[in-house]
């Protein structure tokens, strides 16, 4: 077990949820939480190797100009770290191989998918097999959604959860697998940790607006085979306190927001795990 668990939240080039993401890590009990600008990684001033939990927050990397997170993924794949021989991508792979945790939310999820880190079948972390594309509505939407959790998923982050209620805020969140076999494998390996669902978080749904974007089978979040890389379109860091809930003035709610559980699971796992 590491003596200190350290979280890094990457920002820059259009990322914009870094502050609340870092706040979630702090509330969840990480000993150190650092917001790091991507230029600090590219200049070799910071290294992913020094952290245990990598957060890729929401935002609009490079304006999502070439499709969500496309230019951002291109940068991570091809940009070199100054003063070394390695590409930034190599640090990501080393981080994964070391068994550490990665959480991508919204634009961070899009980034993981466009890189190929999710689902990252057979350790191919740069081979894209699924995508997140334009919502069927053709528009950006901010609305709260119910989410079904697969209790048998290997996902570290959703352990012990029965359902979630969180906001989505995106224009490109529609999950599409490359083909049936990819989808089938996601099911077989129980990698579909989260699905948009009806109000009681039981059944996945294709009905708009409960499924806000037309995602295939209502898929809202997936993990890799180890459950240590997890990406989701809804924003857990946007629901850390009951006053974030859209109906907190009319419902009895626990003080702590539902989204925090994901970060608490990450912290608990790292405290108990041998990294």
């Amino acid at each position: 077990m590491p003596q200190q668990i350290r979280a890094i939240v990457i920002t820059g080039n259009g990322t914009n949820c870094e502050m609340e993401m870092a706040h979630a890590c702090r509330l969840a009990g990480f000993d150190e939480v650092e917001i790091v600008h991507i230029s600090e990684l590219l200049y070799g001033e910071k290294r992913l190797d020094d952290y245990h939990f990598l957060n890729l927050p929401g935002g609009f990397l490079d304006g999502d100009d070439l499709g969500s997170a496309k230019a951002g993924a291109n940068r991570i794949l091809h940009a070199a770290v100054a003063g070394s021989q390695e590409r930034l991508f190599a640090q990501f792979v080393r981080f994964i191989v070391a068994g550490k945790l990665i959480l991508g939310v919204c634009n961070g999820f899009q980034l993981l998918v466009k890189l190929g880190m999710l689902p990252g079948f057979d350790g191919h972390y740069d081979r894209q097999t699924v995508t997140l594309t334009y919502n069927d509505s053709g528009r950006f939407e901010d609305r709260w959604v119910h989410l079904r959790v697969d209790p048998s998923s290997p996902c570290i982050f959703t352990r012990g959860l029965s359902g979630l209620y969180l906001p989505v805020r995106h224009g490109e969140g529609k999950f599409v697998p490359q083909d049936e076999s990819i989808l089938e494998r996601l099911y077989r390996e129980r990698l579909i940790a989260l699905q948009y669902s009806d109000g009681d978080c039981r059944e996945a749904t294709m009905d708009y607006p409960a499924n806000p974007n037309g995602s295939v089978d209502g898929i809202a979040g997936i993990c890799n085979a180890t459950g240590r890389i997890f990406g989701l379109m809804p924003h857990p860091e946007a629901y850390l306190h009951r006053t974030n809930h859209p109906r907190w003035t009319r419902e009895d709610l626990p003080e702590e927001g539902m989204g925090l559980a994901l970060f608490r699971n990450a912290a608990a796992f790292l405290r108990n795990d041998d990294i």
Partner: peptide
């Protein structure tokens, strides 16, 4: 709904409620 009214994590009274 086409405007993000919750980014930065401090949304308390949102434009739509009830």
């Amino acid at each position: 709904r086409q405007y993000d009214h919750e980014v930065q994590g401090g949304s308390i009274v949102k434009p739509l409620t009830g």
